[in-house]
């Protein structure tokens, strides 16, 4: 799965994703050694479960964020969408197993509508994704503060099993997240929408002139991003057993998901990168967080270390990968393939 992630961009992508996973291996080795100095076993089931659980929520959101960034936009509304999703689903389920499906569908539908609006504001009103989604985040946050006083609703036992069940050390929720990631990867690699997404993110003008409808991929990316943020909200609902109006902002998922995407080698300007790298980035954060907790690091220093690691890790490969000229030479080829496929 790792070797040929994006057909057309062989060496470059392989290299950047490869480096992401090398960094991950390095962090794991470091963590294993440092954990051992605390008299603990890094590879014990409990520890691995903690780390993997830590990848679930951020994983969903970062996969969605990857799509939006690939399309040349940003999504800062994800924390609020996540909270809203947990509240809507929790409210509808109200502790009844029979309502699980309705709750899930309703929550994801609400998220899809939000994503659709984000996408339309970005494309039709020509508002930069940063502002469109920042504004959407504010709008939702006001709605949440007005309408929900603290936690709300309740997940029935059947739904909470998703958050609580594991195969060996691997939580089911992480498998679902990986399943979504695989679908997104397939979408990016196998469908016209995926090709167009890269093309539009790479150069909107060129893509437009090449006959690509530039609106559709951007709207789709925003829609999927919100839906995936909604999935994260559902996962949180199943873990917490109640919906919460602040659960999304608590995790700081907006900036952390963007950091994970870039850590995974995706070009922030769009058009270049992949989901596999993002998953690597998410895993790096999870291992690091676990390590810092095992070492009982001061909570303030945790943030400082996170900051340094983000910059250092990206610096390792950013220099070679974001070489503008290289990227530009490559873009027409993407568009060419798009055109080929369009015929």
């Amino acid at each position: 799965m790792s070797a040929v992630e994006q057909g057309g961009r062989r060496s470059v992508t392989l290299t950047s994703t490869g480096i992401v996973y090398l960094v991950l291996v390095f962090v794991v080795v470091l963590a294993a050694i440092l954990t051992a100095t605390q008299g603990r076993n890094f590879f014990s089931t409990g520890n691995l479960t903690t780390i993997l659980t830590g990848t679930g929520v951020l994983g969903f959101i970062a996969v969605g964020q990857t799509l939006v960034i690939l399309a040349g936009s940003l999504d800062l509304s994800v924390p609020y969408v996540t909270s809203l999703s947990s509240l809507v689903a929790g409210g509808i389920m109200a502790g009844q197993s029979s309502n699980v499906l309705a709750g899930v569908v309703a929550a994801l539908a609400v998220c899809a509508v939000i994503g659709l609006v984000n996408g339309l504001v970005v494309t039709l009103l020509d508002v930069h994704g940063f502002i469109a989604t920042l504004g959407m985040g504010l709008i939702i946050s006001g709605y949440l503060a007005t309408n929900y006083k603290g936690s709300h609703g309740e997940a029935p036992r059947s739904f909470r099993l998703i958050g609580a069940t594991r195969i060996g050390p691997v939580p089911i929720s992480v498998l679902i997240m990986l399943g979504c990631a695989v679908l997104v990867i397939l979408m990016l690699r196998r469908t016209r929408l995926g090709m167009h997404l890269y093309a539009v993110g790479g150069n909107r003008e060129v893509a437009r002139m090449s006959g690509v409808r530039t609106t559709t991929p951007v709207v789709a990316a925003h829609l999927l991003s919100s839906v995936l943020a909604g999935m994260a909200g559902l996962l949180l609902l199943s873990r917490l057993s109640v919906g919460s109006p602040t659960i999304g902002s608590q995790g700081g998922y907006d900036l952390m998901s963007i950091a994970a995407v870039v850590l995974g080698g995706t070009l922030l300007a769009g058009g270049k990168g992949n989901v596999l790298g993002t998953l690597g980035g998410v895993a790096i954060f999870a291992v690091l967080d676990n390590l810092m907790s095992v070492m009982s690091l001061n909570a303030f220093l945790k943030d400082a270390v996170r900051g340094l690691v983000i910059v250092a890790a990206v610096a390792v490969y950013a220099r070679r990968d974001t070489h503008r000229r290289l990227a530009r030479f490559e873009r027409p080829s993407v568009t060419d393939r798009v055109l080929e496929e369009a015929r």
Partner: peptide, 9 residues
């Protein structure tokens, strides 16, 4: 927050 968001957009 909501009013602010709408106006910014």
């Amino acid at each position: 927050d909501t009013v602010q968001g709408v106006i910014i957009i």
